[in-house]
Amino acid sequence: MNPTVSVIEPSGILNAVNGNELRREITNLISTGMEIVLIDLQDVTFIDSSGLGALVAAMQSVKQANCKLFICSVNDQVRMVFELTKMDRILQIFATRDEFNSQVLAIQ
């Protein structure tokens, strides 16, 4: 049986305001029984420390609910922030949504 997956597509700058919205959306998804959350950052142009904090909080919420969180489609600036903060070692990041589908959903 395929797991239930929800894709969140934030856009623009991922900062305190958008980060709080992202966390609320993930909390709502978890409460509906979502098993996998994919955050597609294709349309995110910049992430600041508040946005990074929101991703960490989201990751913790998902983990506590025994769900899985994945990230895909990060641009160079976001990738650099992830690398500088070593978040690239904690988050499961895929180059594209297709890569996520083939590597995660195909083995479920």
Rank of each mutant, 00 (worst) to 15 (best):
N2L: 10
N2H: 13
P3G: 02
V7W: 04
I8G: 10
I8H: 15
I8Q: 06
I8M: 11
P10F: 07
G12F: 05
L14V: 10
N15Y: 05
N15I: 10
A16R: 14
V17Y: 12
N18P: 00
E21S: 15
R23Q: 11
R24E: 00
E25C: 13
I26H: 02
I26T: 02
I26N: 00
T27R: 01
N28L: 11
N28T: 05
L29F: 04
L29C: 05
S31H: 09
M34I: 14
V37K: 01
L38W: 02
L38V: 10
L38R: 01
I39P: 01
D40C: 06
Q42W: 11
Q42E: 12
D43F: 13
D43L: 15
T45F: 07
T45P: 00
I47A: 07
D48I: 05
S49R: 14
G51K: 04
L52V: 13
G53K: 03
G53N: 03
A54H: 03
L55G: 02
A58Q: 09
A58I: 01
A58R: 08
Q60H: 12
V62A: 12
K63H: 14
Q64D: 14
A65V: 04
C67K: 08
K68I: 02
K68M: 12
F70A: 02
C72L: 14
C72E: 09
S73N: 02
V74Q: 06
V74R: 00
N75A: 11
D76Q: 13
D76R: 06
D76M: 06
Q77E: 13
Q77T: 04
V81R: 12
E83G: 10
E83C: 07
L84W: 07
T85H: 13
M87I: 06
M87V: 11
M87N: 09
I90V: 12
I90H: 12
Q92C: 01
Q92G: 00
I93K: 00
T96H: 09
T96F: 06
D98A: 07
D98G: 04
F100W: 01
N101G: 03
S102C: 07
Q103C: 08
Q103K: 15
V104K: 00
L105H: 05
L105V: 13
L105P: 06
